[in-house]
Write a protein that binds this DNA or RNA. Structure first.
Lengths: 352, 352
DNA sequence: TTCGCTTGCACAATCGATGGTGCAAAAACT
DNA sequence: AGTTTTTGCACCATCGATTGTGCAAGCGAA
């Protein structure tokens, strides 16, 4: 009597089996049956049959009819990075707890790809879109707007939709200050010994660089204007920046402000193959937190962005009625060297 | 004349505008129009209108009709881990290049959640499902089988569908050997100085533990049977295992085989707050690769699983006609301490 | 008995795209 | 001119669920 690879049961199958009409079956199965004054006993019969035949709703059909899908999208620049992957992890938890289905995709920081990706998701009638670290948030906005899709920017702000971002200026200020203070008074850091590597021409980098300059000036009294080496968000370009620097000056600075963990990987590549002692005096500040990064052989002061708070705030905003686009700053946290913080995985149980 | 937040254009709208029938419009827009002998000029007219009105296919409708969606699923245990996130990154590349839409979700290593997640994805008529590191692959298989969904296991094998996994035994053998050889002959490692931490009762852990035992015995001549401390895939449980060990023996072993980068985070937590010197003599082997992990203050030998090869193989297999379930081993790679390898992100361009 | 109200459900249109089938007009051939 | 073939497209059922509407049966009141 069992189905082998038989087609899945539909409300029409259950309709025949139960003797009720498809609409009644539908109402029973989607929970609106009380409102439709379906008899309790009828409902029970149908629910029993549904169970028996392993009925599951065809969500494409429902989505088509309702013109929303129950899918909630998260668009990341990339997956393979602890900042963004913790974003995904946190996001999933929130979406799941709302009974919807998370869909996480990446768009490679490519404006064109970002728009295409948004369009694809829209074609599936996703209900909401969380846009993380987009290179062109406003381009994505256009696409969403046209489709009437609720959306919100995270990590990098746009001008046309609400944004929830890290307080980059404060974070970078704290970080720069912590780097400088790390050198105490015996052998204080000189202005020309602290350099910033990484970042590109986006809002986050600009803020961080501004704070870096301001803090250097405030604490060290001066700020040579060659202190910043942009190198995009690419380990290899960052590597080349370090190599160029080293080539040119014969040594690395005593202290580094590194714009993101991705850029930090460029430093790793620079370290690879070179003697460890070369880096024994180095002090690094990194705008991003990576647990392994925190335990490198030299002091690494990190900034952890408050992903949980950002996602929470984003969910609040996205449900709200639309008002003039605003940007909300979430305070990040300074992380001392050799710290292993809890992350989103810690809420998962692992019983063995 | 432009639409504001007007509904999206459909083939019916274009049908009216072009004077052709909906089926003709459909054929033109989905590319089957030559097969249907639609005149070139008709096609051009419709394509022009589509462009003008920003037509995009409603993929839910198409999916409903075709009973497949163009979505390809990847089910991970968790996002927030470099191994799995690089899996996601690689997967996305492959799916995109096939013109489909990747959907990445995590299921928290919970068998129940795994099945529910698969069921949800099936309800959206996904075309294929890649099941990574499932706790209960065969449970997921049942669900897929019933729905006639092509699927494949990755990382952890199942008995009922093809599996592509890392060659855990060989990898762990290489790793154990590398750990032991790291100690040269002056002050060689003794059997009771090498311990394995982490893992649970899954295929990967069992293989690794078996290889660990065998290699210890082969190279060190003996293998005390208390050398393995399972602690699931949880940083905190692993932390407690280290604490218990330390409590009990007053020190850490000279050498550690750590079952995964997640367990390695347990070691980080143990390190936090304790003096760095405590670990200066430590040698660690970790079955997983994390670029930052590779540069810790003590030698960390790592194993990088060949994600690219695994995903490639999985795509080959999933398209093949079904045969008796087989498990394919992919050789991992030993990574010497202080190595910063290229990853999936390196194929992305970042011009700034 | 009749009117009116509630209960319980069926009917049918609809969401947007697809693809098998059929048929008129144009073209090719005899 | 008459017949066959080809061309070009329209028609319509269909995928599975949702939802506004309508209506018969049951029941109480008048």
């Amino acid at each position: 009597m069992d189905q082998r690879v038989k087609k899945k049961a539909t409300i029409y199958d259950l309709s025949v089996l139960s003797g009720s009409s498809p609409s009644t079956v539908s109402a029973v199965l989607n929970g609106t049956w009380r409102k439709r004054r379906i008899k309790e006993s009828t409902a029970q019969t149908i629910l029993g049959l549904a169970e028996l035949h392993q009925y599951t709703t065809n969500l494409q059909a429902r989505g088509l009819r309702r013109s929303r899908s129950g899918l909630v999208g998260l668009m990341l620049p990339v997956h393979d990075n602890r900042y963004f992957s913790s974003m995904a992890q946190t996001f999933e938890g929130h979406v799941r707890s709302r009974g919807q289905c998370p869909v996480v995709v990446s768009a490679s920081r490519d404006p064109e790809e970002e728009r295409r990706t948004a369009e694809t998701l829209i074609s599936y009638s996703i209900d909401q879109l969380f846009i993380v670290g987009a290179t062109d948030p406003d381009g994505v906005h256009e696409v969403c707007e046209l489709a009437g899709l609720r959306h919100i920017n995270i990590d990098l702000p746009g001008a046309k939709a609400h944004s929830v971002i890290s307080d980059n200026y404060q974070g970078a200020r704290m970080l720069t200050e912590a780097i400088i203070r790390h050198f105490g008074n015996d052998d204080p850091l000189r202005p020309d010994e602290l350099f910033l590597f990484g970042g590109r021409n986006d809002h986050a980098s600009r803020e961080r660089i501004a704070a870096f300059h301001a803090t250097k000036k405030a604490l060290l009294g001066a700020d040579p204007d060659d202190g910043v080496q942009s190198s995009g968000y690419s380990p290899d370009i960052t590597l080349r920046a370090f190599e160029a620097f080293y080539q040119c000056r014969g040594k690395l600075p005593r202290a580094l402000f590194i714009n993101s963990s991705i850029n930090m990987e460029g430093l790793l590549r620079f370290m690879a193959g070179r003697p460890a002692e070369m880096f024994s005096e180095l002090v690094v500040g990194c705008y991003d937190y990576d647990p392994f990064g925190s335990f490198l052989p030299f002091p690494v002061i990190m900034v952890r962005q408050n992903v949980e708070a950002m996602i929470t705030k984003a969910f609040e905003l996205i449900d709200e009625p639309p008002t003039a686009p605003q940007t909300f700053l979430i305070a990040p946290e300074l992380v001392q060297p050799r710290s292993a913080l809890k992350g989103p995985l810690d809420t998962l149980k692992d019983t063995d």
